[in-house]
């Protein structure tokens, strides 16, 4: 069984008027069936308001489904006595790096999660050392987070989650506020964690370039899961992706346009090298 499993998952936001009556209900997530296997690098794509962040918050049990069920490592997120175990298994990294760092020193922030879990002191130090090393931030352990760049802050945030020894990390648009350099740093750290530590990574994003290396891509639109498959399968549907308000990577787009104008090219080109090879053949 997969580490994350959702069946008919639905979540409605309600707006109330002064009398506590429901004025407006909007379906943020509707009827989502989702399976993510342990060890996968999964990406969830969608434009603003597609429900991808709402879905992410369900995996960490920050939100409870109003319909359907979500299981994290076999635990139903609606069971309140499992709440802390679910949050430990499925860590979460948010968009704004400034608003999720609690400590005034890098190493203290990384230790925050284990402290909350009641891990003994010596163990906390061991975990902090390991997690900082895993994201390549050991050299900055005594620094103040305020002095770090955006990419470094996000790596500290990832280390903070790793120190809780989760089986799965959910990242809600972790690179949206970073410059291209910082974005690369964060993605590299994530890929390494996925490959070396076998942590399941669920990356929520709207940058197409970031999902090229994913094992599985899920596309969301208006609260529904509209497509899923490998990046190659997904990006070969250029027209459908556009309907969801998403662009495919530039190279894929170029290949698509060339094919439309009559060139003989395969449909699943993802990288520049592949396109060069295909054209030169």
């Amino acid at each position: 069984m997969g580490i994350i499993r959702a069946r008919k998952l639905g979540f409605d936001y309600y707006r109330y008027d002064e009398n506590g009556q429901v004025r407006e209900a909007s379906h943020a997530v509707r009827n989502v069936d989702l399976d993510i296997e342990a060890g996968q690098f999964a990406a969830v794509l969608g434009h603003n308001g597609s429900g991808k962040s709402t879905l992410a918050k369900h995996i960490n049990a920050l939100l409870m489904p109003t319909e359907g069920t979500l299981w994290v490592d076999g635990m139903d997120t609606r069971q309140e006595n499992e709440l802390w175990r679910i949050r430990q298994r499925a860590g979460m990294v948010f968009q704004n790096p400034d608003n999720q760092i609690i400590g005034t020193v890098v190493e203290e922030d990384v230790g925050f999660g284990p402290e909350n879990m009641g891990v003994p002191t010596e163990d906390i130090w061991k975990r902090v050392d390991e997690s900082l090393k895993a994201v390549g931030m050991t050299a900055y352990r005594y620094h103040s987070p305020n002095k770090l760049s955006g990419g470094q802050k996000q790596r500290v945030a990832i280390a903070g989650v790793m120190a809780m020894r989760p089986r799965c990390i959910v990242l809600d648009e972790p690179t949206a506020m970073l410059d291209p350099g910082g974005r690369k740093e964060v993605l590299k750290a994530l890929r390494e964690l996925n490959q070396k530590e076998q942590v399941t990574v669920i990356l929520i994003t709207h940058y197409m370039e970031e999902v090229v290396y994913a094992d599985r891509v899920f596309v969301m639109d208006q609260g529904e899961l509209v497509m899923q498959g490998t990046p190659r399968e997904i990006f070969s549907h250029v027209e459908e992706m556009r309907k969801c308000g998403l662009d495919v990577p530039q190279v894929t787009m170029l290949a698509h346009e060339l094919r439309k104008s009559g060139m003989q090219l395969p449909e699943d080109i993802l990288t520049r090298e592949e396109l060069v090879d295909a054209i030169c053949q």
Partner: peptide, 13 residues
């Protein structure tokens, strides 16, 4: 608001 959510996500209780 963001910080409170991040703290909860890291098991702060």
């Amino acid at each position: 608001n963001d910080l409170a959510m991040a703290m909860e996500a890291r098991c702060y209780h």
